[in-house]
Simulated scan of single mutants.
Amino acid sequence: MSLKQVSLVAYLAAFLSVPIAHAEVGFGAGVSYVFGEGVAVGLRVFSDNEEGKGVGLIGLDYMPGTGGVRPSVGIAYLGENVYGELNTGYNNQKGEWNLGIGAGLTDTDEDPKAAPAVAVDTGDDMSPGPVTDL
């Protein structure tokens, strides 16, 4: 196996090891700062799309400074339609592993626990109706 094939297998294994039972994947786009290399722009797939959660991610970045493509894996926190991340990736142009931090936009679902409670009138009110004089 080549280094690129081993890297791809490692990325997939890391992503699949994140518990995703009953979760809908999320998608995002954003900007990362890669230490020692500069800015990268990229796309992300998250292990869940529920806001207020920490999730795993797999991504693909374009490095304008080197012209390289950088597959990445990491962790992210999903806020209300935004995310912040810490990632590691392999710059195929330079043949080096590196670390990055980033942020971007995503379409998150509300946390069901944070939804406001709704009072339901069942009509079983035992209070007497209006009093009228006869």
Results as ranks from 00 to 15, higher is better:
residue 3 L to H: 14
residue 4 K to L: 13
residue 5 Q to C: 02
residue 5 Q to T: 11
residue 7 S to Y: 08
residue 7 S to E: 12
residue 8 L to T: 15
residue 9 V to Q: 12
residue 11 Y to W: 07
residue 12 L to A: 14
residue 16 L to H: 09
residue 22 H to V: 02
residue 25 V to N: 14
residue 27 F to R: 08
residue 30 G to S: 03
residue 32 S to T: 09
residue 32 S to K: 10
residue 33 Y to R: 00
residue 34 V to N: 13
residue 36 G to F: 00
residue 39 V to I: 15
residue 43 L to M: 04
residue 45 V to M: 09
residue 46 F to N: 11
residue 47 S to A: 11
residue 49 N to P: 05
residue 51 E to I: 01
residue 53 K to N: 15
residue 53 K to W: 02
residue 54 G to W: 01
residue 55 V to M: 06
residue 55 V to Y: 07
residue 58 I to H: 05
residue 67 G to D: 06
residue 68 G to F: 02
residue 68 G to I: 03
residue 69 V to T: 07
residue 70 R to S: 10
residue 71 P to I: 07
residue 72 S to M: 06
residue 76 A to V: 03
residue 77 Y to A: 04
residue 77 Y to N: 04
residue 82 V to F: 10
residue 85 E to L: 04
residue 86 L to R: 02
residue 88 T to F: 06
residue 89 G to I: 05
residue 93 Q to P: 04
residue 94 K to T: 15
residue 101 I to Q: 02
residue 103 A to D: 08
residue 103 A to Y: 03
residue 105 L to V: 13
residue 106 T to E: 06
residue 107 D to Y: 08
residue 109 D to W: 04
residue 111 D to Q: 03
residue 112 P to I: 03
residue 115 A to Y: 00
residue 117 A to F: 06
residue 121 D to M: 07
residue 122 T to K: 10
residue 122 T to W: 01
residue 122 T to A: 07
residue 125 D to H: 11
residue 128 P to A: 08
residue 131 V to A: 15
residue 133 D to N: 10
